[in-house]
Each structure stands twice: as structure tokens, then as C-alpha cells.
């Protein structure tokens, strides 16, 4: 039991009325005076606050009493990157736009096996395979893409096509991101455009070796010997 005498403040505090009445802390009610309800003085007050900030900041900038925010953002030591004047470097394995790698003679390395378009979860790759012409050593052994189309708007940049490719023919190592175009059909990349892209070193080929038809390591050589 509390033996301490009550403080004078507690004694003089108003006691709650008996027999009903609201007991507890009185909450401030919303101000419904005419000046608030008619909006106009309150709007004027709000506009005053806003104009105060506006004029103060404008004056300071116009009279050069503070640094120009644009030029300041370009100063060293500011941790905001001012794109596009400054660019954050992409990491080594950044998945950018696709490119089609080439063989040494400049023809596409792709053999039109449709592995990438099958693996693609967004179904953004369309390939039309074609046979090499009569007399080409590769005819009957591997095909080439007559058309190779990637819809970069559908693409989700998952990289499954690169994983699926058995020939290292499609890669995403251009280090470039999609460009804003004016219309949708400009986002549909065709074979020639994809072949024209290079990796970050400006290389159109890939470093993974591949044996071509005259090479002794070409797997089709036995087949030629057997059936040709």
C-alpha cells in the first residue's frame, strides 16, 4: 500500500464526475472555426510558407549565395553519380545486349540448333535455320541461321540463351544496355545488327576455340570420310 502523502498537484487535479461522463485524457478536437472551414485563410497561410521557401532559395541561387546545385553535383567528393555525364562502371560479368559471335571468316558461329530459343523463358528469340549451299563442307553436318531475331523488349536478360548455346555463338558481354528508341520495332534486333556488336574489347569473336571444317579437330571430318 502506498504510504506516501499525495502531492498537492494530484489533489488539486479535477476529479472525474461520478455517474457517467467520459473518464480519461481529453483529446484535442479538430478545429472547425469559420476561418478553417472556409479554406481561404488557411490556403493563404500555406501559400505563404511555400513562397517563403521559394523566394529564399531563388534569391540565394540568383545572387550566388550558394553553390549551383548542378555544377556542385559534378564536383569530386559528391557521392551522387550525375548520369549521363558520369557513368557507373558495369561489372565484368554484366549481362548487356546480346551479340552473335563470328568465326574467323566473319560468318556467324551459330549453327541454328534452336537451343537458345528453346531455353528462352520470354520466348524472345526467333531463328530460321537454313542449309549451307551445295559444295560447302559443312552442308549436311551443321546449319546456319537465315534469320536470327531477338526482341529486346521481351527479353528479361536472364542469360539462359548464353548458357544453352553449345557453340558459344550468343553472348551478352557487350557491356551496353538497351537504348531508348522511338518505336517498338526498333527494339527488334536482326542478325546483321547482332553480328555487328563487339564485346568490351572490340572483339567480334570469342576466345573459346572451335575447330572448323578444314581443321583436323573438326568432328565432322570422320563423317565426311565415311559418307563423302
Amino acid at each position: 500500500m502506498n504510504q506516501e502523502p499525495k502531492s498537492p498537484a494530484a489533489e488539486s487535479a479535477p476529479q472525474p464526475r461520478r455517474g457517467g461522463g467520459i473518464i480519461g485524457k481529453k483529446l484535442p478536437r479538430p478545429d472547425r472555426s469559420p476561418s478553417v472551414q472556409s479554406y481561404v485563410p488557411e490556403i493563404a497561410k500555406g501559400m505563404g510558407v511555400l513562397l517563403d521557401h521559394f523566394f529564399r532559395n531563388t534569391r540565394d541561387m540568383v545572387f550566388g549565395q550558394r553553390n549551383d546545385p548542378v555544377l556542385e553535383a559534378l564536383e569530386p567528393g559528391i557521392n551522387t553519380i550525375s548520369y549521363p555525364e558520369q557513368k557507373r562502371p558495369y561489372p565484368e560479368r554484366f549481362r548487356g545486349l546480346h551479340r552473335l559471335t563470328t568465326r574467323e571468316d566473319g560468318s556467324p558461329r551459330c549453327v541454328a540448333c534452336l537451343c537458345c530459343s528453346t531455353a528462352c523463358p520470354a520466348q524472345c528469340i526467333y531463328i530460321e535455320p537454313a542449309e549451307y549451299p551445295e559444295g560447302d563442307a559443312r552442308r549436311g553436318y551443321e546449319r546456319y541461321p537465315a534469320r536470327f531475331v531477338i526482341d529486346e523488349l521481351r527479353c528479361i536478360f536472364c542469360g539462359f540463351c548464353v548458357e544453352a548455346c553449345p557453340c558459344d555463338a550468343i553472348r551478352m558481354d557487350t557491356g551496353a544496355h538497351a537504348v531508348p528508341y522511338d518505336s517498338r520495332d526498333q527494339f527488334v534486333y536482326h542478325k546483321d545488327l547482332l553480328l555487328s556488336f563487339a564485346n568490351r574489347r572490340g572483339d567480334h569473336q570469342t576466345r573459346n576455340p572451335r575447330a572448323e571444317s578444314p581443321d583436323p579437330g573438326w568432328p565432322g571430318i570422320d563423317r565426311l570420310g565415311k559418307h563423302g
Binding site: 559528391i78 553519380i81 557513368k87 557507373r88 562502371p89 557491356g175
Partner: peptide, 19 residues
């Protein structure tokens, strides 16, 4: 405060893009 921290570290200005 983060900008001050970055400044103390010598800034975080990015190197030019390598691509």
C-alpha cells in the same frame, strides 16, 4: 552525413566506363 563520410574517404567519383 553520407556525403561527408564519402568525402572523408576521398570521394566516390566513378572511374570512366570501361566499355
Amino acid at each position: 552525413s553520407s556525403a561527408e563520410l564519402a568525402q572523408a574517404q576521398g570521394g566516390t567519383r566513378a572511374t570512366p566506363m570501361q566499355a
